[in-house]
Design a protein around this nucleic acid. Structure first.
Length: 573
RNA sequence: CGGGGUGUACCUCAAUCUGGUAGAGGGCCGGCUUUGGGUGCCGGACGUUGCAGGUUCAAAUCCUGCCACCCCGACCA
């Protein structure tokens, strides 16, 4: 492809509404443009990346035995009404009516539609197992789209659904998908972890997320530095700390101390000369109807989702200042479990402190020598966030906490949808059973952004070869006859070898062309100019090589072969 | 939905506080110059200042209402 014949509108300046690296670079490199909040158009360069990603996904899905289908995006409301998700999805569902007033929604995901297909077309155990997938546009009225392609209202997703005779076969299907996903993310050059996730919402029995590790990620993941253990922060665990402090029997009775104006853990610990981990941090939460006093170690933080799960409620949030005053009879900052009338929940690592410091429920006062089980009662749960340095529950090594982008999610669904929609098959005995399902998603357009988040430098994008919009870029400097001829010769040889080639044949100064080359991030650059030819050939420089002086000068006759070798080597597994 | 911020040329932004002919840089078109990391100069096109009201001799600027977008929190590929 000749640059003059394509449309790659690059820009020196970052758009004002972009904050994430991927958003800025995809815009600057002319890959995408914003049309509305959470709605993007793909320009030629961006589409090529998208198609590369899709091709890898298709290959691996097909190889795992999945069958590609294409379901509609425009869905009559009856399907979502049948499972109750017409109401459950709430505002997130994009709804519309036709001229007759019939209700529709745009598909946010396709469990209902695929289950409908299955109940019509899959009748016998002989038809099983089946795994059907599609790559298709999804619509969700997100409360807050953000980060460019990272979180959109219209986005491309690969979704697959497996159907099996029973739970154990469903697990086989799940394992196959796990393997396919691993191949997919490996081939795209990601740094990622497969993590345990909270599978509650979808009603499934087993699930894992594929988290791409980047600073700008929305999710928090605790991952072991030694073994494979990795878990979403809301499900991550760590072994209980050994009891802290002196022998419990030797601890004197609680003693009230005056701590004027010291409210935060930091202030009080400084005032009393104690460490934060000796504190019983007490927080008042609203959970369902009532208030709950939550106690964690001073250097720990409460995880709201873990807390809600422990309490058996949908959600919890910190009580307002007024409610705290009412509940503790003291200003915020002096709450404590001793004498607190109401429900108390204690984190296991706070419960094991034998000699703790905590609020006295009285202005400017704290209590020393406080001990769970002796001085106050409270249900013991694990409700704190895992932090850097906590121990791995699997192997005992150190955990690290990372930010991640959820790029894929795999679930065993069970019969959640099939039983609601009466999707059954006949087994060998002629008995009717519900199909056992699994579902498997990958955010395809999100992957474009995730790749850029992980593969960039100060000058722009650095595409991995497997997903690069073009594999090789020829930067032509000058329009002299011998330069034009050399470029044409290289172009012919490379295209004959099936290399995806972009030739920057534009007029313009070298500086600008080099800047654009780095920005759009083609993995290998061949520079052809009068100077290089006089020096003996063309310059070959991988995008990963930052120093232009390290470009390699190769004879014109060898250049094409060298480039082809480079591309092939980069594509090897 | 709560909190914070921004709307001026295709893009990035000044001018708004203190009302008085709407500007710069980049990009784009034309010319000269330059030619290995965003050359320099000259000329040119591009605007209902988000929308609707109001105040005023006069509104980008002040007032009221609305809309859009971005960021921080509760959901998700």
């Amino acid at each position: 492809m000749r640059y003059r014949n394509t449309l790659i509108p690059t820009s020196k300046e970052a758009p004002s509404d972009a904050t994430s690296v991927s958003h800025i670079l995809l815009m600057r490199a002319g890959c995408v443009r914003r049309v509305g909040t959470g709605i993007y158009e793909f320009l030629p360069l961006g589409v090529r990346v998208l198609r590369k990603i899709e091709a890898i996904i298709r290959q691996e899905m097909d190889r795992a035995g999945a069958l590609e289908v294409l379901l509609p995006a425009l869905l009559p409301s009856e399907y979502f009404k049948e499972t109750g998700r017409w109401d459950l999805f709430g505002d997130t569902l994009m709804r519309l009516k036709d001229r007759k007033g019939t209700e529709y929604n745009l598909g946010p995901t396709h469990e209902e539609i695929i289950t409908d297909l299955a109940r019509r077309e899959i009748k016998s155990y002989r038809d099983l197992p089946k795994n059907l997938y599609q790559i298709q546009t999804k619509f969700r009225d997100e409360p807050r789209p953000r980060g460019g392609l990272l979180r959109c209202r219209e986005f491309s997703m690969k979704d697959a659904y497996s159907f099996d005779v029973d739970e154990s076969r469903a697990l086989d299907s799940y394992e196959k998908m796990r393997g396919a996903y691993t191949n997919i993310f490996d081939r795209m050059g990601f740094r990622y972890r497969m993590v345990q996730a909270d599978s509650g919402a979808m009603g499934g029995s087993k699930s894992a997320e594929f988290q791409v590790l980047v600073q700008s990620g929305e999710d928090m993941v605790a991952a072991c530095m030694q073994c494979d253990y990795a878990a979403n922060l809301e499900v991550a665990t760590s072994p209980p700390f050994p009891p802290q402090g002196p022998d419990p029997k030797s601890v004197p009775a609680p003693e009230k101390v005056h701590t004027p104006k010291a409210k935060t853990i930091e202030q009080v610990s400084k005032f009393l000369g104690a460490e934060p981990k000796q504190f019983l941090k007490s927080l008042v939460y609203v959970a369902g109807e009532g208030l709950v006093l939550v106690v964690v170690r001073g250097d720990h933080e409460v995880n709201d989702i873990k807390l809600a799960r422990a309490l058996g409620v949908d959600e919890v949030f910190l009580a307002a200042e007024e409610d705290v005053k009412k509940a503790t009879a003291a200003p915020v900052g002096f709450a404590g479990p001793v004498g607190f009338r109401g429900r108390i929940v204690v984190d296991q690592d706070a419960a094991s402190i034998s000699d703790g410091i905590t609020g006295a429920n009285e202005r400017d006062h704290h209590l020393k020598h406080v001990q769970h089980g002796r001085d106050f009662e409270g249900e013991v749960e694990t409700i704190r966030n895992i932090i850097d340095g906590d121990l791995c529950p699997s192997c005992g090594a150190s955990l690290g906490v990372y930010r991640g982008i959820e790029a894929g999610h795999i679930f065993v669904l069970g019969t959640h949808y099939s039983s609601k929609m009466n999707a059954t098959y006949l087994d060998e005995k002629g008995e009717s059973n519900a199909l056992v399902m699994g579902c498997y998603g990958i955010g395809v357009s999100r992957l474009v952004a995730a790749i850029v988040e992980q593969h960039n430098d100060d000058n722009g994008i650095v595409w991995p070869m497997s997903v690069a919009p073009y594999q090789v870029l020829i930067t032509q400097l000058g329009q002299e006859v011998e330069v034009v001829a050399a470029v044409a010769q290289l172009e012919k040889e490379l295209e004959a070898a099936g290399i995806e080639l972009l030739v920057d044949d534009r007029e313009g100064r070298p500086g600008g062309k080099f800047k654009d080359a780095d920005l759009i991030g083609i993995p290998l650059r061949l520079t052809v100019g009068k100077r290089s030819l006089d020096n003996g050939g063309v310059e070959l420089k991988p995008r990963t090589e930052k120093n232009p002086k390290n470009a390699e000068l190769v004879p014109l006759a060898d250049a094409a072969k060298r480039a082809i070798d480079y591309v092939q080597k980069a594509l090897e597994p």
